[in-house]
Design a binder for these strands. Structure first.
Lengths: 150, 150
DNA sequence: GCTTAAAGGTTACGTTTGTAACTAACAACG
DNA sequence: CGTTGTTAGTTACAAACGTAACCTTTAAGC
């Protein structure tokens, strides 16, 4: 621990902490959409964005969720086959289509939202409301800042 | 937005925020180990843990990094082929081997540590030292709490 | 209008991943 | 000891992924 070598203690290297936290929380939640609805992680995320932000194009989902377009493309296809969403042609630009949840998709989203909210509350309980809120704010800030660099 | 339906606004659903932040930071850093050393993400993470926590078994890395054992197994094999690590038989239990960085592995780790530290500093700068510190602490807390449930 | 460039998506292909089944070494218990 | 169960790690196989090439539609330049 000489002072010349500024003791680069990276045991708390942020990308790893983020990955680990993301991975653990994700794994602890996935059975909810996987076992009951046979959905994959990306499918759940796409459905989530459609459910909470409303109908939108694949491109918009890519941007908002930081997901690769091929990943989204395949998830959309899968959700379509499961009758959770349908495509609506946008008149002014026929390259992209508006993705909309079906009745069934909306119902499933609603159910999963309930479970997700409960799940989210466990974080709030273990961290405390204040720290939880702070974490959310910090993450949003971080995401906004790093969004453009991709 | 009736009050009966408690407006489950999940636009800040924690698992997604974590994933997104993890994904963005990870993507912004990966070219450092990928282009220069041909390392994959998991390989970098394994090397990182060996470098910062010292020689250890695959199992220990799995636990500490929340990585699946097959993923670690393959990363170790790849790092071994690249002469970044070697295995040392532990006398009292021949099921597991101690994984150790080679000279070359240590050198590479040292170089990457410098870059990683710089990278980490960009977070500190954009968030501010205090918020950055708080974030790290919160994430560590979160990880500890959810570790057992896997 | 015609050519060229770019954007939204999809698909083909090779790589990476997870699940499950496996080997090998150890531990417990009779 | 010998059987049974468990743990560390590897491997086979199928599923999921990213890169790059592709189609289609729109926009830009002339």
């Amino acid at each position: 621990m000489t002072s010349a070598q500024p003791d680069t203690d990276l045991s708390d290297f942020l990308p790893f902490l983020l990955f680990q936290a993301a991975e653990l929380s994700s794994r602890n939640f996935q059975h909810h959409y996987q076992s009951r609805y046979g959905m994959l992680r990306t499918e759940w995320r796409v459905m989530f964005h459609l459910g909470s932000d409303g109908s939108q194009t694949a491109k918009q989902i890519c941007n908002r969720a930081s997901l690769h377009k091929t990943k989204v493309s395949r998830a959309v296809k899968a959700l379509e086959e499961k009758r959770f969403l349908f495509r609506e042609t946008v008149t002014h630009d026929r390259r992209s289509e508006l993705l909309c949840l079906t009745k069934q998709g909306q119902a499933t989203f609603a159910k999963l939202t309930v479970v997700a909210t409960e799940f989210d509350k466990t974080f709030e309980q273990s961290l405390g409301a204040k720290e939880h809120e702070k974490l959310v704010a910090t993450l949003q800030k971080l995401i906004t800042l790093h969004q453009g660099k991709g």
